Simulated scan of single mutants.
Amino acid sequence: MSEVGASAGADEILVSFRGVQKSYDGENLIVKDLNLDIRKGEFLTLLGPSGSGKTTSLMMLAGFETPTAGEILLAGRSINNVPPHKRDIGMVFQNYALFPHMTVAENLGFPLSVRGLNRTDISERVKRVLSMVQLDAFAQRYPAQLSGGQQQRVALARALVFEPQLVLMDEPLGALDKQLREHMQMEIKHLHQRLGVTVVYVTHDQGEALTMSDRVAVFHQGEIQQIAPPRMLYEEPKNTFVANFIGENNRLNGRLHSQDGDRCVVELSRGEKVQALAVNVGRTGDPVTLSIRPERISLNGFSEACANRFSGRVEEFIYLGDHVRVRMEVCGKNDFFVKQPIAELDPTLAVGDVVPLGWQVEHVRALDPLLEAN
């Protein structure tokens, strides 16, 4: 969405979750105390691993699940007891959910006839929405005669045809192959920009979330860990879970040696000291996990200006077309990755070479210690 569009609706809240909880057995909370405001016209993605509560939150907003506690407001009024078909919400699922015995045009007309529109209005709107998703020639086909991408377009058109104020999408591109999926990501994003409708999108694919969204809410164990625009989420993760879940991330474990305002020094297990941004740290002596993105690491001569400078041994090259991932042993850790664009890679670099490398203070974040064994 353009910056203008995003800020124009920024003050107007369309959806509010207030203290929302969900439990299926009365003991374990799938969603814990969710407080979330969704702005009118924004594209918000709920991102997280399986079982993190993102889909349950979407289903409560759709009306297919009821909150155990708390309240959901749509345009300022509580919808806890409003049935799904009266919420003015469009839905797109991964499995398309099209009626197989109806043509494309009939599938699209169905939500309109249920709402009591006359035939002329229905055919006008169906025509308009078919052209929007570039399927004008397919009106008389049946779902079985369409490819997966075309079916997904029809499902998208059906969610938009009655001009809802809110469209919910649950892993809508999960069944498509990589190339088609990436193409559809851009199509949905551009449709959103043109229509200005509010979209809440659920995915476990971080690349998809970063590509499409105005803001992303990262879920873990029923709670939002961080909610921010994609770039901020990637560059400024608030905790170790977000740093690991979004993009690639090198982790170094150590203890807080000293802190001075928003800067700190962390001592690694073998005694090396790293200067870092103090983002989420405890007291001196407490364990800390450092987070450094692979593309922020400089090799050889490029590392001379870096505040943190070490040596690393090249273990492996992983070729990825436009860039190379170099696996290195650094500070006793043998899965430390450096990402180098092909144009910048030193062609003489070989497995076994020991080279200087470094990173700036502003590119290493001192976060909460990682509790898992990895």
Rank of each mutant, 00 (worst) to 15 (best):
A343F: 05
T284V: 14
F138H: 10
N253C: 14
P67M: 02
M328C: 13
E27S: 11
L168H: 07
Q140V: 05
D11V: 11
S57H: 08
H190A: 12
V197I: 13
G9H: 13
Q21W: 10
Q21L: 10
G148P: 03
E12F: 03
Q145I: 13
N28A: 13
M59V: 01
H204I: 00
L146V: 04
L173C: 10
S213C: 01
D37K: 10
G63P: 14
G196H: 08
Q226S: 05
Q179I: 08
S123Q: 15
A69Q: 15
K189E: 04
S131F: 07
G174H: 00
Q152M: 04
S298V: 15
T348S: 15
D25I: 00
S16L: 14
A144S: 12
M91C: 02
V82M: 11
P111K: 05
R39K: 14
L180A: 12
S23C: 10
R365I: 06
H323D: 13
F310L: 05
R270M: 12
V330Y: 09
H192A: 09
F336G: 04
D170E: 09
A6Y: 13
V133C: 11
T289Q: 00
S78G: 13
D353M: 05
F93I: 11
T211K: 01
N239C: 11
S78N: 13
D121L: 06
V281K: 07
L29T: 03
D37T: 01
Q221R: 11
P100H: 10
L29C: 05
A159C: 03
L130F: 09
S258Y: 08
K54E: 13
R231C: 06
K32R: 11
P164A: 01
T240W: 07
V361P: 04
A157Q: 01
A139F: 02
L345P: 00
P67E: 06
K127F: 12
S52K: 04
V104Y: 03
S57R: 06
V288C: 03
V104S: 05
Q185M: 02
C264S: 12
G148L: 06
E315D: 15
V354A: 12
V92M: 08
E106Q: 13
A97Y: 08
V129S: 01
W359M: 06
E315I: 15
S16C: 14
R115N: 04
V167T: 09
V314F: 14
L268G: 10
K127Q: 15
A157Y: 06
V161F: 01
F336A: 07
G247S: 06
I30S: 12
M102G: 14
S113P: 15
R115D: 00
S291R: 04
M169E: 13
Y319C: 07
N300P: 08
R325L: 14
A243Y: 01
W359E: 10
L367I: 14
L166R: 00
Q21K: 03
Q193D: 15
L117K: 03
L36D: 04
H323C: 08
P229W: 02
G285E: 02
G222H: 09
E235D: 12
S303Y: 12
I297M: 09
L146K: 08
R39E: 08
A350Q: 14
E208K: 09
P111V: 02
V351I: 15
P164V: 04
A157F: 09
P229M: 05
L73T: 11
F310S: 03
R293I: 03
V161D: 03
P347I: 06
Q179T: 11
